[in-house]
Design a protein around this nucleic acid. Structure first.
Lengths: 246, 246
DNA sequence: GAGGCGCATTGATCCACGTCAAGTCAGTGC
DNA sequence: GCACTGACTTGACGTGGATCAATGCGCCTC
């Protein structure tokens, strides 16, 4: 029972692998539990800066953060959108190589880095679980390369909404987004542009164009309604059998 | 001794983690060894097609392969360049979601998928090792997003040569490429263009431009000489303290 | 050596997106 | 109500890279 207790307190954490945890060493899990702490970050705040050592690894419980690189001349590219269950920092490296910023208010579940790294070394199921999570992130990153490298501005914006809708649906427990979906936009236009490799003006124009084409509605600046998800997905360059991006 | 034997025969494989392997269960390693086989693929051949089941996971021993997605209208984006030690396929998924093609002649070390997956589940050090490899690939993919999203054609081409020089140096045992480096180009101009999100014409023009600027020399179509690596890296948008891409 | 074939390069033109510069609009403070 | 601010939108124009079209060049076959 002590085992199960500890595991259930893990429910909101990255290592949310109930069945698997049951096979882990209770002493090790207890250690991880002890090093765990929660933290709330206000919107706009910096969570980590490129090159600065991280004392903790954390996973996002609620909210949205961006991971970006800024070149010396000011050009910025967001390389990842961090949503609930995503990880900040990686075992085996002291620093983040990207800037991580809270796009909305973010709550984190933090683990002391040393402890966490020891767990990964010693506990097979945590390493295996983390491996699956990382492989999924790798797929997302590669899928995004197709968007960045080969899509038009209009397709990029559509792809962004489609991808965000999929990820929000997944977080909310559903598999696929409903045909008609309401989307909360945790990012400013500038942050969207940085994610898409576009300027803020082009992004804005394409959002307008999609609205005029009836593919999206914009009830407010930070919300998007998608009347027909399939149609939007088509606009994002997906063939009819649906895409793969998470 | 039997343990050590098995491990040393792993030297050219992804699971090349001698010290770590010594702690693994000999029976499990033996199983992995039994499922191992080598294979040579001619240049230009398809190694895997998106959506088709893979019976084997493999790692590249020699040569170069590309991982790409082709959209219905023919646009193609290469999402990863596979060089020695890189992995093809992933545990936990039956198919590759990308087309994998041999750019040059490729030799593979293949593992039967089922066996390999069981190993990942059961053997902590293999999962941990695979996790580190995957995290590195994730960094490479994210770094490439910066290139695709925010760099000019000239910077993209320079970044490609710089990145390739780093990876070839790494494979050859050195840490950083020498100041003056000879680079073998395993890709056609078209494949380079697909990797950079450019057309073949723009790619060719930028190679010419870099040559005229004295940043590279082109002794043959499939070779590049870099007289001053640092200078080329600067052209690729890196600040002076060097970049992070593998 | 002539022809053909597959790549790569080069040239001329076009257009999608960047740039620069005004608006517009919601929110906030007085 | 009115000014102020910051985020967003819209407009006019310029440009980097795409597109279309030759041309060059190694390599193979005959």
């Amino acid at each position: 029972m002590s085992k199960i207790d500890r595991i259930s307190s893990c429910d909101d954490c990255p290592i949310r692998h109930n069945a698997v945890c049951a096979e882990c060493d209770a002493a090790e899990l207890a250690m991880l539990e002890r090093s765990k702490s929660y933290m709330t970050i206000p919107a706009g705040a910096t969570i980590a800066s490129a090159g600065e050592p991280l004392t903790h690894l954390s996973s996002i419980i609620t909210g949205c953060a961006t991971m970006s690189r800024t070149l010396e001349d000011g050009r910025r590219q967001t390389v990842g959108l961090l949503l609930p269950s995503n990880f900040i920092g990686r075992p085996g490296r002291e620093c983040s190589i990207y800037d991580v910023e809270a796009a909305s208010e973010v709550t984190l579940c933090r683990f002391e880095r040393r402890t966490f790294e020891r767990m990964v070394q010693d506990t097979p199921h945590i390493a295996a679980r983390l491996l699956m999570m990382t492989l999924d992130e790798l797929d997302v990153a590669r899928e995004w390369a197709v968007v960045l490298g080969r899509m038009t501005a209009r397709e990029k914006v559509a792809a962004f909404f489609v991808s965000l809708a999929r990820r929000q649906a997944q977080t909310d427990g559903g598999r696929q987004p409903a045909r008609t979906t309401m989307l909360s936009l945790p990012l400013s236009r500038e942050a969207i542009a940085d994610h898409l490799g576009l300027t803020i003006e082009t992004t804005s124009r394409q959002i307008t164009a999609l609205r005029k084409a009836g593919l999206i509605e914009t009830p407010s600046l930070r919300a998007i309604r998608i009347p027909d998800f399939e149609k939007l997905a088509l606009e994002a360059g997906e063939d009819d059998d649906g895409g793969i991006v998470a």
